[in-house]
Design a protein around this nucleic acid. Sequence first.
DNA 1: CAGTGTCTAGGACGAGCGTCCTAAGATGAT
DNA 2: ATCATCTTAGGACGCTCGTCCTAGACACTG
Lengths: 188, 188
Amino acid sequence: MAGGATRAQIVAAADRLFYEQGFEHTSFTAIAEAVGLSRGNFYYHFKSKDEILAAVIGCRVEATRAMLRQWEDEAAGPAERIRRFIRIVETNGADIRDYGCPVGTLTAELAKLRHPSRPEATALFTLFRDWLRAQFTALGRARDADELALHVLAFSQGVAALANAFGDQDFVRREVERQEAWLAALDS
Amino acid sequence: MAGGATRAQIVAAADRLFYEQGFEHTSFTAIAEAVGLSRGNFYYHFKSKDEILAAVIGCRVEATRAMLRQWEDEAAGPAERIRRFIRIVETNGADIRDYGCPVGTLTAELAKLRHPSRPEATALFTLFRDWLRAQFTALGRARDADELALHVLAFSQGVAALANAFGDQDFVRREVERQEAWLAALDS
DNA sequence: CAGTGTCTAGGACGAGCGTCCTAAGATGAT
DNA sequence: ATCATCTTAGGACGCTCGTCCTAGACACTG
């Protein structure tokens, strides 16, 4: 069915534009131009802009789940998996420098807009939080696993915010090294 | 001159609204209602919305400078001054939980909007960065003072982002303790 | 070939936006 | 009291927004 493909194209274009320009600043016209469709036609696929947002968030949830699954398959142990997460601010360095963290900036914007879909955006954070907590638990830190998970999550948010503000890649690299050293020192 | 007072009232109201709702989402009408003036009259005080933003940023720069000066007066040494900064995420806990960091969220929004005033917003970060670097230098860490300053800045941004997302004050308290322990361990 | 359901283009619609103008009120000096 | 200046209210303007309607193109089925 070609409709499903068109819908997926719309979601993909909206996903990128919401990331680069923010949700509110992105208009139907901009998404339509990106996909190459007429503006009015959107109503056939989505009844409102909020519905596109919901689809985008759902798409991101799925992509995040897939990425975490892949990390579990590829990485040897929990420590290596956590390192994968820590390095993500360096792996996606260019995008983060230009547009910040996709999860963090969307969550912050929806909070200011008091948007109904805010909890769904926060759930993206929870996805990482739960996954990290599981890794720290496997690392033998069941007692403070959630606290450590939030700490690593906060690290990534802080680094992303400053990387975006100052555009400094060296800073990102240094902070990743520091955080990896912190992780290595956890064992002892 | 009453005009100066009115102008200051407008800037104060806009400052708060930009913080709570974001710059783009805040309309002239909303600011006018907050101040109790007619919408059209704004053109007498500010030629455009961007001009209000510039005034708001300038106001925040001045307030930040005053706060940093006060910390220098009140706090005993550089370590205590840095602790003041670290604790700010707890001191302003309620606002940060509801609206995030004023500097971080504004910088992120203006980056997405590609707004001309973005450098001025980033300068707010630089204000803290330079001040922290000076404190770390006074602490005898001249060699890596800037790196340490950015690290502390990243801490505050990360904590603010997650505090806003999850609304968890205990998390903030724990992270402040952790960061203070990190600072205390720097001496040795 | 007729008909049916899927998908699309194009534009109308009311609302809200930032901007800008104009006339009138307030204030103070002469 | 008169006048110039500062400050205000109210609304018009053109534009873009999200929303929604309608007519037709297209592909597939009987």
